[in-house]
Amino acid sequence: MALIAVLAALGVQGCASQRSESALEDAAAAFQAVKDDADVLRSAPRDVIRAGESLGRAERLSGYFGSGADVRHYAYLSQRYSEIAREHSRLAANQERLAKLDLERQRLQLALREAKLDSVQQQGKWLETQIAALASEQGERGLVMTLSDVLFDTGRAELKNSASRTVLKLVQFLQLNPARVVRIEGYTDSTGTPEDNLTLSRERAQAVGDMLVDLGVDEKRIEVEGYGDQYPVEANASERGRAQNRRVEIVFSDAKGRLAPAR
């Protein structure tokens, strides 16, 4: 019975030293790997040194009988130090990349901001000239843009498709000048009754206003007025004169949103 126990104990010991052997080998391999890695050495020198010390201790102990548990313990510690060292070097590498990437982000952000600014300024300038070509300064009424009757069919209030491009420019202009507001004024010639003309002029102005709203201009920035056949720009005697009187005028406020009073 005692013999069996001793044999069993020896057997356990044999297994144990085999386990210790492989733990030792693993730890040695891990240490070799971090020791030969310049990045790891640079970012976690102390942990590498400790991995080496623990490994040395494990190796020395492995020469003694019955030291299996200690060998495995120090092999374990050595392995852990190696892993910690490697993890630290990963972290350091990531932090380096983070710093570089953040610099790049800042650079790109600046470039983008400049590009956007450029394009807004260019667009703004282009539109200013476009609007200026379509509009004229009218004394105390300020900047006024006239949409002629070719944008409407006779007697109809719906905007024709050919009006879209002009209105689109108007929308872009208003989007680039968010403080500006407009008053849309409708006018007719003197054909027909004054009541019908007043209604038609108002509907035409409203049609332009609705289109602006549909295209994203805030309703609050738009006033709509109908003046019927009042304020003709030409005598209604000729067809040419009447055509010029059938119109929608867009009165712009100044850059601060101050609009000339309605007529």
Partner: peptide, 15 residues
Amino acid sequence: QAELDARLAEARVLT
């Protein structure tokens, strides 16, 4: 062992 396990855990979380 617990000390080094914890230190490795800390390093892994940071990474």
